[in-house]
Design a protein around this nucleic acid. Structure first.
Lengths: 228, 228
DNA sequence: CGCTAAGTTGAAAGAAGTCAATGAAAGTGG
DNA sequence: CCACTTTCATTGACTTCTTTCAACTTAGCG
């Protein structure tokens, strides 16, 4: 029987004992979300680990309930194959962020208990989890760096440059609103920066899609505003 | 023989098998740092885990080499008993931050290898490491929240409030420069905010020392500027 | 006793956010 | 299939917050 959810191919589970993997797979339950629906919210207890099968989810810090204007801060956006929620697996702490579907999405839920069982049966599981968490930690540190050491123009430029490095010449997975939130700027500011880049022929804008024309030039933007 | 370095009392090693603990202790080597000395720098390979025995170290993102003005971003400041460097243990990635002693400091170095050995011998070690890393991740998320969702006044207020929660009525461990860097503002801005709080009798300033007078009032500051 | 680093304070510039209006696109329901 | 509604993106004017630059004070230390 083909594996509809290729656990074995996910970096987190690479090299894990087949039997343990099977147990995990059987413990996993699919969950469907409509666009805009919340998988969990800040303050709720952690239920386990999630794997995105299809669609897109956004992990974001909710705005303060008091403030009317909805300014929020996206931590990360996860597409198919991505894993999230692993940070709270071993912590008796509530979720710190909201998780909301950005489109019709299917995720796979793996309960804490199943994970704990896997950890006990194959020590490699915890090693992989450690590796995974460390990576997330480093990413977050870089994000902090970006937010506090760079201005809006630099942030947008390095974000686009990263995307180019990652091999995509077009970026269309989510709205500019979400990108803005991930970069910690308002949609208005992002729009202004983008049109500037567009004028410099670094990118081409077309109804929500962004074409990356000149990765080199974007990299220069990051350095340029630094030395000024 | 008394344990000069109380591994057993550190949260990270709570409950670990005594034998494993002993092995770790023997693998640990003390390292002395003068004020201003670097333990490691961004880009270097990770050497293992560190425990602060005495003194104070600062983990900070270095400023871009090009820019003259030395604006850096402190991630965390660690005092006696604190553990750091655990994020790179299982990752073949270079350090993302600089680590610099803020005073005459002694740290204990535990090599990767020793840690790996401990993980193999007692699975509880990895569980504890996971717990530790998760906590760090959550802290960082909160930091991102603070930086991108709050203004300088709110950030300072919530920082001071946290300190009050943590039980200290006086804060003098490090210079205002470092606090400013941790909060992502310039020393000038911090000074202005502090003198404002001082005028409101929320804190009392005295040659570098900060006395927390009114934790409640500080908490109100955070909320107040939100709803405005 | 001067030297250096840290903190304070003022004035001015700059970056980004807010508010508001408009246009375009996409989804919805009859 | 079309009219309607809602959401998203764009643009301009204005405001606010923070940094920058500079001068000055104070404290610590050889």
């Amino acid at each position: 029987m083909a594996d509809p959810i290729p656990f074995a191919r996910m970096p987190l589970f690479r090299g894990i004992d087949a039997e343990v993997l099977d147990a995990l797979r059987q413990a996993a339950t699919p969950q469907h979300l409509r666009k805009g629906e919340f998988l969990f919210r800040r303050g709720e207890a952690c239920q386990g680990l999630y794997v995105v099968v299809e669609g897109l989810v956004k992990l974001a810090l909710p705005t303060a309930p008091a403030s009317e204007r909805t300014l929020e801060r996206a931590i990360e956006v996860f597409g198919p194959g991505a894993i999230f929620g692993e940070d709270a697996l071993f912590l008796d702490a509530p979720q710190v962020a909201d998780c909301q579907a950005q489109a019709r999405t299917t995720v796979l839920h793996v309960s804490k208990l199943a994970l704990w069982g896997a950890v006990e049966r194959d020590p490699l599981v915890s090693t992989q989890l450690l590796r995974n968490l460390s990576g997330r930690l480093h990413t977050l540190m870089r994000d902090i760096e970006a937010v506090s050491l760079q201005n809006a123009l630099q942030r947008v430029a390095s974000f686009l440059h990263e995307q180019a490095q990652a091999g995509r010449r077009t970026w269309l997975a989510c709205t500019q609103r979400v990108i803005a939130s991930k970069l910690g700027v308002t949609p208005e500011t992002l729009s202004r920066v983008m049109s500037r880049f567009s004028a410099q022929k670094l990118v081409k804008l077309e109804r929500g899609k962004i074409f990356l024309l000149d990765a080199e030039g974007l990299a220069r933007q990051v350095a340029a505003s630094n030395e000024r």
